[in-house]
Amino acid sequence: MNVRPRHNVRATARVALAFATALVAAAAASCAGSGGRSEGLDPSTLPSNVRADYGVFAHRCSKCHSLARPLNSGISDDGYWAMYVARMRRQPGSGISHDDEVAILRFLHYYSLEQKRKKPAQGASSHVTLERGAL
């Protein structure tokens, strides 16, 4: 025997419609603009010699957290990246091997240079050591 309360049919349909509309609107808003809105990068915009390293970065780092965290962390120092990625590699269950670490650091080196190139003024004047990273 099943018990389905009478109230649910219309109310549920209305709520479902409202939520679906809101989500579709969000999807449309996301797709309406140009690139750069996803959490990761578009591999086709990367140099061919960086794409494989980016693939390793994207696959390994997205296991536990959004790619937005490292990409928007503001870290640009290779030494800091090395320490940071080493800490992530040693997290239980990270799945990041020593070879992966090398590939990830190669990509982050490229990405940091690109970020500096795009924002030369900010990069040169910044001396804040408090960076942002993954939860």
Binding site: H7, Y84, A134
Partner: peptide, 25 residues
């Protein structure tokens, strides 16, 4: 000479949980 590297991370989620049985009765 401040050598210790720090990073700050955060997240915020706002969620609306709709329970039609509670919205209509």
């Amino acid at each position: 000479a401040f050598a210790v590297e720090h990073n700050l991370a955060g997240s915020v989620q706002l969620d609306y949980h709709a329970v039609p049985a509670n919205m209509t009765h």
